[in-house]
Amino acid sequence: MTAGTSKLISRQKPTRLARITQHLKREWQLYLMLLPTVIWLLVFLYKPMYGLQIAFKDYSVFRGVAGSPWIGFEHFHILFENDQFLRALKNTVIMSAYGLLFGFPIPILLALMFNEVLNQFFKKTAQTIVYLPHFISSVIIAGIVITSFSPSAGIVNTILGWFGVDSIYFLTKPEWFRPIFIGTGIWQEAGFQSIVYLAAIAGVSPTLYESAVVDGANRWQMMWKITIPSIMTTIIIMLIIRIGNILEISFEMIILLYQPATYETADVVNTFIYRQGLQGGQYDFAAAAGLFNAVVAFILVMTANTISKRYSRTSLW
């Protein structure tokens, strides 16, 4: 560095500093407003990210996060030889994929159906009812599922009994877990998810329908030729986002519904982490599983965001 440039920098410094000081003097209130949120994010969300280093350490409670010795990728080596983890990873993807296959089209259908209802009272009532389960807690939903599928008194077995089928203890049967879990998810969320599509439909220009009527189109034709093509962008964006969130599965519901007898089909990555870490105390190992999950999920979500942004130029979420 020559004497000339350092002189220049030293001359610039006070002006820059002075500018910031002046800005702060005038706008300090804004920073004061932002401060609590920033501190909160640092303490409760960013500090745990620093704590993620235990995934590469032999963590001991007494030595703490920083004091525990590094062991490199050992937890990850063990993780990828752990049958339970691999099973959980497989189950996560399978359940998300089934959830997508059966759960994705239903909100679209519902929105299209709502749009065709002319009686506003009927429409409002129907919407009020189908949105409701979204607001009910997973514990209550699980309670309803457990009660309904109970072998002794549940309504499902009562109905099966009418047809001479013997009582089945559904929640202990691995082959029944996925249908019950996915069906519950659809029952709870399909109605509410239709809101996004209804909003998209509301944005379709009425002139399109008016000119279609003049051309003698019926409602069925208008739905296929106008409504569906008009909301295709929204459908594709939602699909990309759902695929991006494939590792995000509502594990709270799984924790409530699964039991050792159904781990085989029900155990997902987050329930595995919960059992190994929070119930079993293997914090470092479970954190490694969590880190793997979070990194893959992050990559998927960012990719999905980028694609959907390119597709629409305005990402929805």
């Binding site: 910031i20 706008e27 920073y31 479970a286 992050f298 979500v301």
Partner: peptide, 28 residues
Amino acid sequence: QLYGRRFWNLTVAFTMWFNAGLIPFFLN
């Protein structure tokens, strides 16, 4: 007029895309 507005917004948005997970949050 907030200085570094993009940075602060990103600080918030990043927590929606990436979180440390169950174990580090619990230990914290």
